[in-house]
Design a protein around this nucleic acid. Structure first.
Lengths: 350, 350
DNA sequence: CTGAAAGCGCTTACAG
DNA sequence: CTGAAAGCGCTTACAG
């Protein structure tokens, strides 16, 4: 007996190894093409006997409907695209899952891609998704000019921006209250006696980073505290830069900070590491919640946003656009929540 | 001047709002269909002047090639599917990103879905992806019988199982050394003087959970330590059950454990919380690394697997299958790494 | 250099 | 209850 033939007997370059089509099924069952289509799609008007014959042929041939063909004819692909910054960032995990759940409830699949915070890559991905004719698009934008989407919007591609607004086009957007959240977080530090407070955030071209900085400035201004330039550091959120920024604020010969407000989860994690190396107690409030924040000593006080709610709300709006029940682009803002765990309640060290 | 017409003037149920096709472009440019196709695909053999006219028509109409149609004709969709357990689990973030990067390098898009550890849902998702005619499939299986994939494999759908092997079919698989990793982790605790060691893991029907339990048993047997039933607890990894399991092992009137080996990241996090509430020092080694593990006191000793390498290796094998350079299903096992940070080096409390 | 015809695998709109 | 024809928007294989 020969070896069981395996992958080697498939024709690698061939069209899916010549899968059987409805035509093949029809021939084998001795019926018309349309009758096969009826059985495959569970449409009424087929006698049990005919249905049995067709089903038999389907099983014998291992037929599986080709949705590519179906999509071409029907016009809807039952798929949506999600473009985010980085699939590996813990912030996007719950967001993606929430989107997937809504998509699933609507019978749609999810195509996922990362822009790596690169506007060109965002554009490339979004347009690739449009070429695939996704029914809708959920975009966490990296760029600030989305006019390239205008023909797509006109053509009826449902679109919702998430976490950050679209640039130079009028589109639905669901964001967190970045300004208010940051302001509250910084005000919390001020209420605990701090006046020299640092801010370390992401690149200022990122909308959320700019808004959070604005919140920081507003809280300081509300308290009548003049802000030193050396207290603010914006840039990439890699550990090296953030570490340097934190060290510099802490070591400032004239105005060393007694507290730091960190602009996102990645920055917070690095600053926790830096502070762990210092004996002086420095207060910390971070934007975004982080896992195990409650188990550190002190626990990490954060301004939490609800990533799952962000994803769910955006996805639901997307499908309402597709229903035709949502006609005018809007901006939806979700509240943030201050969670006190200790690090934000430390008094100034001096 | 009327309001700018927006979404309201699109026909919601219509075929993508009647997008222009190559035929429309051809008519407007006064050329044949094939010439438009040549320009759109950058094929040679078009005079600059003709190309200019076509390009003008493309821009004026906002034409974007419909890849659904292209796919139908070409036979390959340039997309792969990834079915995992839960998009929100931090373990799958780096894995998904690694897969996406390999896919991107091969010009393919990634369709992502969660099985929620439900075999029926896994099957449903996988078959939906096959109907979409993804070129390849990366599956972190929830079920243990994948014979439903046989017609698809025969039809040439490239398939690699990740993290856990396929059930009842012969397929490529990339896994971590779960058995060896767990054995080493438990041996580490034994080397630090522990004899009463607990194991808390996931449901035994999950292959990784079974393998890790086997590693635990092997280490204990190697050391000549008889294992009490009350030291092993397998089941869902929700906090309630894990918490109860940990409390029971710690409170066992006859053989209270002095150390716990936790079977995955979710279990580890819950057990850390439980131990934080106890005054007695209990040693802990966890399977899977967790963020901030180094900042806890004591730091958490773990058996780390390389989730990104798992995803990358599997995706690369998938594309080699598609190339035709990989013909026989194999099992690839990636090593784990013991990272000592303190919790695993605590001596027995008695 | 350019284009008309056939076909990918389905669904739609009809007719019997 | 059943099926033949046309068509979705492209690419392929040819012919000029």
């Amino acid at each position: 007996m020969p070896d069981t033939p395996r992958r080697a007997d498939r024709l690698p370059g061939s069209r899916y190894g010549n899968r059987p089509t409805m035509k093949d099924v029809a021939a084998r069952a001795g019926v018309g093409l349309k009758t096969v289509s009826r059985v495959v799609n569970g449409e009424p008007g087929v006698t049990p006997e005919t249905e049995r014959r067709v089903q038999e042929a389907i099983d014998a041939l291992g037929f599986r409907r080709n949705d590519s063909a179906r999509v071409l004819r029907k016009g809807r692909t039952a798929s949506i695209g999600l473009v985010l910054e980085d699939l590996a960032d813990p912030f996007y995990g719950p967001l993606s899952r929430a989107v997937e759940e809504v998509a699933r409830a609507h019978g749609a699949l999810l195509i996922n891609g990362s822009s790596a915070e690169d506007p060109d890559r965002e554009r490339e991905l979004v347009l690739a998704l449009c070429a695939r004719r996704v029914d809708g698009l959920l975009v966490i934008p990296a760029g600030d000019d989305h006019r390239y989407l205008e023909p797509e919007l006109r053509a009826g591609v449902a679109t919702v921006f998430v976490d950050r607004p679209a640039g130079r086009i009028d589109a639905d957007v669901v964001v967190s209250d970045n300004f208010g959240g940051a302001r509250d977080g910084v005000a919390h530090l001020i209420a605990h006696g701090h006046r020299r407070i640092g801010f370390i955030g992401d690149m200022p071209r990122i909308h959320t980073a700019a808004e959070r900085l604005r919140g920081y400035r507003a809280a300081m201004e509300d308290a009548g505290i003049p802000v030193k330039d050396s207290w603010m550091s914006l840039g990439v959120t890699g550990p090296e830069r953030v570490r340097r920024a934190a060290e510099e604020m802490l070591a400032d010969p004239h105005h060393p900070v007694t507290a730091i407000f960190t602009g996102n989860n990645r920055v917070t994690v690095t600053v926790i590491r830096v502070l762990a190396e210092h004996t002086r107690r420095v207060a910390l409030v971070g934007f975004d919640d982080i896992e195990l924040a409650d188990l550190l000593r002190p626990g990490v006080t954060v301004v939490a946003q609800d990533a799952a709610a962000l994803g769910r709300t955006a996805a639901e709006r997307l499908f309402r656009q597709l229903d035709g029940t949502l006609l005018v682009p809007e901006r939806v803002e979700l509240p943030t929540r201050l969670i006190t765990r200790g690090s934000g309640e430390l008094p100034p060290a001096d």
